[in-house]
Design a protein around this nucleic acid. Sequence first.
DNA 1: AATAATAATTAGTTCGGACTAAATTTACCC
DNA 2: GGGTAAATTTAGTCCGAACTAATTATTATT
Lengths: 222, 222
Amino acid sequence: MEHTLTISVQDYLKHIYELTENGENASTNALAEKLDVKPASVTVMVQKLALSTPALVEYQKHQGVTLTKEGRKAALEVIRHHRLLETWLVRTLGYSWDEVHEDAERLEHVISEDFERRIAAVMGHPVRDPHGEFIPTAELTMPLDDSVPLSALRPNQTAMLQCVRGADAELLRHLESLGLVPGVHLEVLEYSPFDHNLMVKAGSKSAVLGLNVTHKIFVEVL
Amino acid sequence: MEHTLTISVQDYLKHIYELTENGENASTNALAEKLDVKPASVTVMVQKLALSTPALVEYQKHQGVTLTKEGRKAALEVIRHHRLLETWLVRTLGYSWDEVHEDAERLEHVISEDFERRIAAVMGHPVRDPHGEFIPTAELTMPLDDSVPLSALRPNQTAMLQCVRGADAELLRHLESLGLVPGVHLEVLEYSPFDHNLMVKAGSKSAVLGLNVTHKIFVEVL
DNA sequence: AATAATAATTAGTTCGGACTAAATTTACCC
DNA sequence: GGGTAAATTTAGTCCGAACTAATTATTATT
Ligand SMILES: [Mn+2]
Ligand SMILES: [Mn+2]
Ligand SMILES: [Mn+2]
Ligand SMILES: [Mn+2]
C-alpha cells in the first residue's frame, strides 16, 4: 500500500468505478459531468492516473478509461467508506435516506481504517447501505448483484425491491412516500408501450412511474 | 457567515486560539511548530488572514498574532467539532482517550452543522471532552475555566483532576495507568523544591511527577 | 553601543488541481 | 467520401499553500 491518494483522485476513481460497472469505458464528458468539473480537467487528471505507478486507470486517447486492479481496489475502498458511513448515519444519528449522501461524500475521504473497522463492527458488518446498495467487503470485493431494473418488468410480475441507485434527495423522498423502499414487495399492474411507464403497486399504494424512475430502481423478480 | 474556510485556515485559527489562551500573542515560530510547517509559510498565511475581509487575525510584523472576533468564532467552531467528535468516538465507538486525537483532527473539518447538532444531541450536549477540556457551546462561547495547573499545588493539598491538556498518547496511557483521569480526587504528598517534582496520590496509587507532567494536568483545589 | 544569536520576513519556486480558449479527433449524415 | 457537430485533447493561466534561500529585525551579551 503506497501513497495516500488525494481526495480528488479518490473521487475520480469512485466515479470511474460507477461509470464502468456496466462494462463500458467511462467517457471524459460523463466523468466531467459526475465530478462537476470541465472535460479538459478530466483529460489531464486521467492522463496522470494512467501514468502513475502503479497505474490506476487504463487510458487511451478518445477511448475513455477503465480501472486497473489497483484503481479498482482504491475505488472500492472509498465506496466501502461511503456506504458504511451512510448506513451508520442512518442507524445511529437518525438521518433519513435522502439526507445522508452529502455528509458521507466528505467523510469518506478522511476516516481511518480503524474507524472503518469500528463502525462496521458496531453495526454487525452490514451488507447493504440505506439505499440497498451492496457495501464492498473489508477485503474489497463486491458481492455479485443479480438484480434487474424495474423497467424490465411487465404486468403481473412481482418482485422485491433491492436498491435505488442514482436518485436525488427529492426522488428518494417521493419513493419513500410511495412505500418504495428496499425490501418491499411490489407488483407491476400496467405497462404503456409508448412511453414505457409502469404502474406499480407496493402495499396499499400504487403509482405510475416513468422510465426515468424505473431504471433507477433495482429488483429481484419473484 | 462567509463560511468555507479551507482546512489549512481552520487549522491555523485553531492553533492560534490555543497559543493565545494565556493572553500572549502567538509567535510565528510557535505556530510553525504546532502546525508542522516552516516559519516562512506561517508569515505568509498570517498576512493573508490579517488582510482578508473580515480580518481573522490581528497582526503586525515581528509581534505575532491574535484572533479577531471573527477569527475567534471560527476557531471555536473547529474546536467544538474536535471535542464533540472526540467525545463521541470514545462514547460510541470505544476509542480510548489516547486514540481519539488523530481521527478527530481530520473529521473536525468536514462535518456539517447538522452532523454537529446530531451528535451533540445524541450525547446529551456534553460539556467536557474525554480529556476534560471544555467543549465550546453551540453559540460558540467558551465556559470560564477556573482550574489551576497541578504544578501549583503543594503537600497536603487535595484536588479534583479536571483536565489533561497537551499530552501525547503515551503520556495519556501512563496517566491512566496511575488513575490520573478527569474526575479523580488526588492529594499531593511531597514536593521537591529543586526539580519541582510532586508526589501525587490518586486512589491507591501514587507517583512522582515532573514539571513536564504536572503543568499539563489541571485541577480544582478542594 | 556594538555584535552575535535568534526570530521573522521576503523573494522566488514548486505542486496539485482546477479553469478558458484553441486545436484536433472521432462520429454521423447525406 | 466530404462536411459538420460533438467529444476530446492541448496549451497556457491561476490559485492555495507549501518549500528553500537570502535578507532584515529584534534580542541578548558583553
Ligand atoms: Mn467525495
Ligand atoms: Mn447509498
Ligand atoms: Mn485539523
Ligand atoms: Mn481533547
